[in-house]
Design a protein around this nucleic acid. Structure first.
Length: 593
RNA sequence: GACCCCGUAGCUCAGUGGAUUAGAGCGUUUCCCUGCGGAGGAAAAGGCCGUGCGUUCGAGUCGCACCGGGGUCGCCA
């Protein structure tokens, strides 16, 4: 649904007023100039971005066109280079034939003017687009279990999901985040029975949740040897499903306790989820789902009484209802999709769920389609890999190596605070704490977002909390340096003279400007691939280019006041854009650190 | 047994069909503070892109088969 081809994008952008980013305009100008020659059929114009070692910003490979015209690619390239007319005041600086390629370069002066004006005008919204206007996307993410602490199993869904929400919003989509709480099913009966047996924990917050987990574990262990306990737990879950007031009240108490604790984690992670309907919400719709599936002929009741779905797109057989009449999470997931389609009329439904659930979601999507709900909506599973401990073992409560989200954040912040104390002892205490919070939490978030979500992650404290290289800290540090320069410029009495942005033609300046200009494109790619790491990559490349610029181009002591003014504008834009990129990932950017 | 994901530098990762040099970071070895924040910058060394066939003018990228790692497969979520 999101075009990937650059030429397509140029066309698309031209049709959308209000979108006039430098690289899109550059591409449109190049496309128009090529078309104007009348030599190349429009349908073979496929512009590509040359590799870094090629001194050009856009290339037209001539292979296809040359074949169609019966000439050699280098010959056609040379011919076009000689005859093409470039707009005099546009962003295209030059065109050159290099072998079988026609290479186009940006005009540095006009690029500088365009990019800096855009970033300054857009501020915190830099990169905003209208691509998704009038289209709704529902993102299903986080999904903690009620009466339990959030652990590393939820952190990936939460962080990746929120980044995707931010990215889609930036593209203009109406995005609805839904927290599909694990608050139902047979296991919740055990929670209630355990509380009945041992009483509500008198502790608070995460500690109370830990107590509930312990109660749960004791009850489950006892029930192994005592069928009566198991039966009692089942009875509690039944009371819950039938709306028993006491059961419902106790359930609500658990939900409130869990969500209050979760909210503190969400606040620290800059996570805000629009809804939290949870599995329980769909209870009244389940009978209808089962009936519909049978009516549609995709499910049938077998001899044992279970409702079965088989031979669906060659997928393994699965159940929609247990033989004892109970429903399954598949049943609730179908109901959830039906509800979301009716309630939000989305164009796409995105599930940010772990890779082990791939088969379940394939079955779910196939079933929903077979029931006739597939039209006009794209169902996507953004599968993320598993987190292992330093020894490569899966994390589990039983194994005793489980890592809980709050503890993880606290630990990361404590370590960051030690670094802040060492590097910046002059900061006020309150600011030290704030910086440590941003740096520590940022490290945890970035550790999850800097690479493809599909990959498994091995928990490595040293790497996660790295303060150099491709790390959150490096990005935050780059931002703080920008702000520092701007602050000192103000203290010196003013930002410099005028806005002679055409002076920004030093190679380091031009490279930085080109990277800044790429954020809109990075946003589209990140959305199309459901891959926040594209934004992380952009942030990192920007910080690196700024680092080079910082070494090579003095700002406050620039050769002339005009150049100083222009460079200050570039620094301000870098700070703003970097802050924007980090915000998309849910990472805060302190002014000092 | 079937299906899904992964395999690129010692380690962690980008590279989603096109240019005689496959890119980063960490680690290793060297440099750079009489210039704005050294949580920086520059340089070097380090690769039969898991293996083998194929498709193509061209394959890290596409197809098939193997090998290695992770995962899933009717009454849990």
């Amino acid at each position: 649904m999101i075009p990937r081809n650059v030429a397509q994008l140029a066309t698309l952008n031209a049709e959308r007023p209000g979108m006039d980013y430098a690289l899109e305009r550059f591409t449109a100008e190049v496309t128009a100039a090529i078309a104007a020659t009348g030599r190349v059929p429009l349908d073979v114009i496929e512009l590509t971005t040359p590799k870094a070692n090629i001194p050009a910003d856009l290339a037209l490979p001539m292979f296809k066109a040359a074949k169609a015209l019966g000439v050699s690619p280098p010959q056609l390239a040379a011919e076009l280079a000689a005859s093409i007319q470039l707009p005099a005041t546009g962003l295209v600086g030059s065109v050159e034939a290099t072998g079988p390629f026609l290479n186009f370069s940006l005009n540095p002066e006009r690029l500088a003017q365009h990019v800096l004006a855009t970033i300054q005008a857009q501020g915190d919204a830099y990169g905003a687009q209208t691509l998704g206007a009038d289209q709704t996307v529902v993102v299903d993410y986080s999904a903690p279990n009620i009466a339990k602490r959030m652990h590393v199993g939820h952190i990936r869904s939460t962080i990746i999901g929120q980044a995707l929400v931010n990215i889609y919003r930036a593209l203009g989509y109406r995005v609805i985040g839904d927290n599909h709480l694990g608050d139902w099913g047979k296991q919740f009966g055990v929670v209630l029975a355990a509380i009945e047996r041992e009483g509500k924990p008198t502790t608070e917050g995460e500690v109370a949740l830990a107590d509930l987990e312990a109660q749960y574990a004791r009850y489950a262990a006892a029930a192994k040897d005592d069928p009566a306990l198991d039966e009692h737990a089942r009875h509690w879950s039944l009371r819950l499903e039938q709306g028993d007031a006491d059961a419902r009240a106790l359930w609500q108490w658990c939900v409130d306790l869990t969500m209050t604790a979760a909210q503190r984690n969400y606040d620290r992670l800059s996570v805000k989820i629009d809804h939290a309907y949870g599995e329980s919400f769909y209870e009244p719709m389940l009978a209808d789902v089962i009936a519909q599936a049978q009516a549609a002929g995709v499910a049938f009741r077998d001899e044992g009484g279970a409702v079965v779905v088989e031979n669906l797109q060659k997928l393994p057989t699965f159940l929609l209802q247990r033989s004892d009449g109970g429903t399954l999470y598949m049943t609730r997931d179908v109901a959830t999709i039906v509800f979301r389609l009716r309630e939000f009329a989305p164009r796409a439904l995105i599930y940010v769920v772990g890779e082990p659930q791939t088969l379940h979601l394939r079955q779910l999507f196939a079933l929903v389609e077979a029931m006739g709900y597939g039209a006009g909506v794209t169902l996507t599973h953004v599968a993320f890999g598993t987190i292992f401990d330093a020894k490569g073992m899966p994390l589990s409560t039983r194994r005793g190596n489980m890592v809980y989200l709050e503890a993880l954040l606290d630990d990361a912040v404590a370590r960051a605070l030690a670094v802040v104390e060492q590097k910046s002892p002059e900061l006020p205490e309150a600011e030290k704490l704030a910086v440590a919070e941003a740096v520590g939490v940022g490290a945890v978030v970035y550790n999850d977002l800097y690479q493809d979500p599909k990959r498994n992650i091995t928990l490595d404290w040293e790497r996660m909390l790295a303060t150099e290289g491709n790390s959150a800290t490096y990005l935050q540090y780059s931002h703080a340096r920008c702000v520092s320069i701007l602050r000192r410029a103000n203290e010196d009495g003013g930002g410099g003279v005028g806005d002679a942005l055409t002076l920004l033609t030093h190679p380091a300046e031009t490279r930085l400007l080109k990277h800044l200009a790429r954020l809109p494109e990075a946003l589209r790619e990140a959305a199309a691939r459901h891959a926040p790491f594209v934004i992380a990559d952009w942030c990192y490349a920007t910080a690196r280019e700024f680092g080079v610029f910082f070494e090579q181009c003095p700002v406050l002591r620039a050769e002339t006041p005009a150049l100083r003014g222009a460079r200050l504008r570039l620094v301000a834009a870098t700070a703003s854009a970097l802050r924007r990129g980090l915000a998309l990932l849910g990472i805060r950017a302190p002014e000092r650190m």
